[in-house]
Computed example of a mutant assay.
Amino acid sequence: MTTEPLGRRERKNAQTRRALSEAAERLFLARGYDAVAVKDIADEVDVSVPTLFKHVPDGKPAVMFDDGVERRESLLGAVHDRPEGVSVIAALRDFMAGRGPFEQHPSKLFRRRTELIMGTPALREYSRKLWIRCEAPLAEAIAAELALPPSDVTARAAARYVLEIPQFVGDEPDPRTALHAIFDLLEHGLPAPPVKS
């Protein structure tokens, strides 16, 4: 499948959207989220506030994020393009292990950005929204890979549990260990209780 090249208007819109995102991240990191107004971000890019809202209808918490398409496509790719013999849950574990607070060797900027998101309730909640928007397509992908009906409740539950992990354990003292503990639970269930003597 070939992708049509973007027209001039689409390229200009994408460029403005990217500039807004970069400006918001720069300002939030420098001043803190609460000290930055939407007008500050618009001024930084030399656009009006209505223009900012045209590009980012969800407002201030959404400005530094993309539209979530890359996130959704990457998640679906992790399921559909996983190597032979790798389970769906193992593929999703590998995918999540490279995101946000679970990244093993983040750059300094990546770490600062992640700390900003995880430490700012509005940004953290918006990030969660982007994850949850992926629930229906991820559930369908899981169901398809396991030859289950598209609306299978277990596929839906697995998708929901996986997508809640960043919100649920992202601020644990060791998020990566917590991530693996949750995926161990998803793959193997709860451990058996100790045998009473």
Rank of each mutant, 00 (worst) to 15 (best):
E22Q: 10
E22M: 08
E22V: 13
E22G: 15
A23F: 03
A23W: 03
A23I: 07
A24D: 04
A24T: 12
A24H: 05
E25H: 13
R26P: 10
R26I: 11
R26K: 15
R26S: 15
L27S: 11
L27R: 00
F28W: 13
F28V: 12
F28D: 11
L29E: 04
L29G: 12
L29S: 02
L29A: 11
L29K: 01
L29V: 03
L29Y: 05
L29P: 03
A30L: 15
A30Q: 15
A30M: 08
R31L: 12
G32A: 10
G32R: 14
Y33S: 09
Y33A: 13
Y33T: 02
Y33E: 06
D34M: 05
D34E: 15
D34Y: 05
D34C: 04
A35M: 10
V36T: 03
V36M: 06
V36L: 06
A37E: 11
A37K: 09
A37C: 07
V38F: 00
V38Y: 05
V38G: 01
V38A: 14
V38C: 09
V38R: 06
V38H: 04
K39R: 15
K39P: 08
D40E: 14
D40N: 10
D40Q: 09
I41P: 04
A42E: 06
A42H: 06
A42T: 08
A42I: 04
D43P: 00
D43F: 05
D43Q: 09
D43K: 06
D43I: 04
D43W: 00
E44W: 00
V45S: 15
V45L: 12
V45Q: 04
V45C: 09
V45I: 01
V45A: 09
D46V: 10
D46Q: 12
D46P: 09
D46Y: 07
V47Y: 01
S48L: 00
S48V: 02
V49K: 09
V49E: 10
P50S: 02
P50L: 02
P50G: 11
L52P: 01
L52S: 07
L52K: 02
F53W: 04
F53K: 00
H55R: 13
H55Q: 11
V56A: 00
V56R: 13
V56P: 08
V56E: 08
P57N: 11
D58A: 14
D58F: 14
D58Y: 05
D58T: 02
G59C: 05
G59V: 09
G59N: 10
K60G: 09
K60I: 03
K60T: 00
K60S: 02
K60H: 06
K60N: 01
P61Q: 04
P61I: 07
P61Y: 01
